[in-house]
């Protein structure tokens, strides 16, 4: 690590007053009020989504997939069909039941929004973890070993990169949606949320692995790596003990930005029928359900649309704040 080669004389001359990189980053982040505000917004969204079962059971008194097609409710003292005789669902009532209206099947949009948020965030998070783990492993191997290892890994990544992420996601998603995925004894059912998470995770690996490889190519030539070699450290120890910690700030930033990308791709795949499978709610499936009645029932698209925009905006701005905080001079970009 960089600290290993820093002498005590240099430390005393440090203009930061001895604060570590993490503390410095947090200090910079605290000064970025906009990023912090969006970070708080994201946390609030996550909390709201986690509380979906509580809202469904104690406030809306209905489940996310429960149909109320023929039911009549009182809105401002007036009997109102949840779904009209011509299949027009009720709009926002601003009451506990059907707060944000109902969809074509008479399902509570607010309940589905929260459950859909859980699904979208869960898939986004798992997909991002898959992307980051895959990308870090491949990027480090390629960058550290170079030579034929780099050639093979880079060409495979190029191959995946050659396909537009959405098209590749749709192709994989649709093909796995029916039969699921079986790898040895492990079977993931077709309707499982792990399928879109896996698809998204794999699709985005090259987008992170290539910048990681570039960083590792640079880091492996640094003095602290030479020092580790002189000390007789093995390759794996150098990779994971010396190089990886120096990638941490880059990875933290990538994680945040990638999370936003994964949420967007999940919504896109679900919108196209290649992601979350009906009747499970995700913001993408909610958009798909609502788009056919966009003029008559705009709330069906507006509600999940706004939620999606806010979440992605929050993650992106907070992620950008993290980038500025961890390395204000770095030009980290998720290449698309």
């Amino acid at each position: 690590m960089t600290d290993v080669v820093l002498g005590s004389a240099e430390k005393s001359a440090d203009p930061t007053g001895g604060a570590g990189p993490l503390r410095l980053a947090l200090r910079r982040l605290r000064r970025n009020r906009i990023a912090l505000a969006f970070g708080v917004l994201f946390v609030l969204i996550v909390i709201a989504c986690l509380l979906a079962p509580v809202y469904a059971a104690h406030i809306a008194h209905t489940g996310p997939n429960t149909n109320h097609i023929s039911e009549v409710i009182k809105v401002n003292g007036k009997d109102t069909n949840v779904v009209s005789l011509t299949d027009l669902p009720i709009g926002p009532t601003w009451h506990s039941q059907f707060l944000l209206g109902a969809d074509q099947n008479g399902r509570d949009v607010a309940v589905r929004l929260l459950y859909g948020g859980r699904t979208s965030l869960e898939i986004g998070l798992i997909a991002t973890l898959i992307t980051m783990i895959g990308a870090v492993l491949l990027g480090m191997l390629a960058g550290f070993f170079r030579g034929w290892v780099d050639t093979i890994i880079s060409r495979v990544l190029d191959l995946i990169w050659a396909y537009p992420a959405l098209l590749l996601g749709v192709a994989l998603g649709v093909s796995l949606a029916v039969g699921g995925l079986s790898i040895g004894p492990v079977h993931i059912a077709g309707g499982s949320n792990l399928i879109p998470a896996l698809v998204i995770g794999i699709v985005y690996i090259p987008y992170v692995a290539r910048p990681v490889r570039g960083e590792v190519l640079s880091l492996r030539e640094r003095e602290f790596v030479d020092a580790a070699r002189i000390l007789g450290y093995g390759r794996l120890r150098i990779m994971f003990g010396e190089v990886l910690p120096n990638l941490s700030s880059t990875l933290v930033v990538f994680f945040a930005l990638q999370l936003a990308q994964s949420i967007v791709l999940e919504a896109a795949l679900s919108f196209l029928g290649a992601g979350v499978q009906a009747p499970n709610a995700s913001w993408g499936t909610m958009l798909a359900d609502g788009v056919q009645d966009v003029t008559a029932s705009p709330h069906l698209t507006l509600v999940p649309g706004i939620a999606l925009v806010l979440t992605v905006l929050a993650v992106n701005i907070f992620g950008d704040g993290l980038r500025q905080a961890f390395d204000p001079r770095a030009r980290i970009r998720v290449e698309r």
């Binding site: 097609i69 023929s70 779904v83 009209s84 005789l85 299949d87 099947n105």
Partner: peptide
Amino acid sequence: TDRTALARLSSG
């Protein structure tokens, strides 16, 4: 099976 409910879903 609520057949009138299903009829609603078809916009008549």
